[in-house]
């Protein structure tokens, strides 16, 4: 474990690195170690993955310390098996490069891994941070340029914060109906 980093920092970095493995982003600052920097634009971490994971509503918060510690332990074992030398300035999972982080996440979420449900849950919360900004109001997230919602191109609402699409249809018949359609419009 890194000498100058307290346990909370180490756990945060490990969980950030996990979220960044699920939907990666660009480094937040030069020297950002948790975010691997393999993708342009913000990823799950910049989108609020840690806020979602720590939210009271989500229910994951009480388990996070144990999960972060377990993640680092899994990374230590993985590195030992693979003959990877860890950088002790950062937590073990953070020390792995992106391809190795991916391989370890695949192992942890694999069909037979005893902890798969927990790791899939962390992945789900990372995903909903990115493309739903579940920790904040959608209108505010969009206005603030939320990385995930911006990446997927989620369109903004009207000025009252509600979505309406005046233009929505090609407006013409585009296929023949099934020949046995009943008068109610159902299949026969």
């Amino acid at each position: 474990m890194p000498g100058e980093m307290d346990a909370d920092q180490a756990r945060t970095m490990a969980l950030e690195a996990y979220a960044d493995t699920i939907l990666p982003g660009e480094k937040r600052w030069p020297g950002d170690r948790a975010v691997a920097g393999v993708s342009q634009g913000g990823g799950a971490v910049a989108s609020g993955a840690l806020e979602v994971l720590r939210s009271a509503e989500g229910g994951m918060a009480p388990a996070l310390d144990a999960l972060a510690d377990a993640l680092n332990e899994h990374a230590r074992q993985y590195a030992a098996e693979a003959g990877i030398e860890l950088d002790h300035d950062v937590p073990p999972f953070v020390s792995l490069d992106y391809p190795n982080r991916v391989r370890l996440v695949q192992r942890l979420t694999g069909r037979t891994h005893p902890e798969r449900e927990a790791w899939i849950s962390v992945a789900m919360f990372s995903t909903i941070a990115f493309d739903a900004a579940a920790h904040t109001h959608t209108v505010e997230a969009l206005a603030a340029g939320h990385p995930g919602l911006t990446t997927i191109g989620f369109r903004p609402p009207d000025s009252d914060g509600l979505w309406r699409f005046d233009s929505y249809s090609y407006g013409r018949q585009l296929a023949r109906p099934h020949p046995h359609t009943t008068p109610s419009g159902s299949p026969a």
Partner: peptide, 18 residues
Amino acid sequence: VGPTWFGAEKKEILRSWQ
């Protein structure tokens, strides 16, 4: 050949979500 439901390539397909 990489992971199908998460990862860098998953993020790329999200760019064309619309």
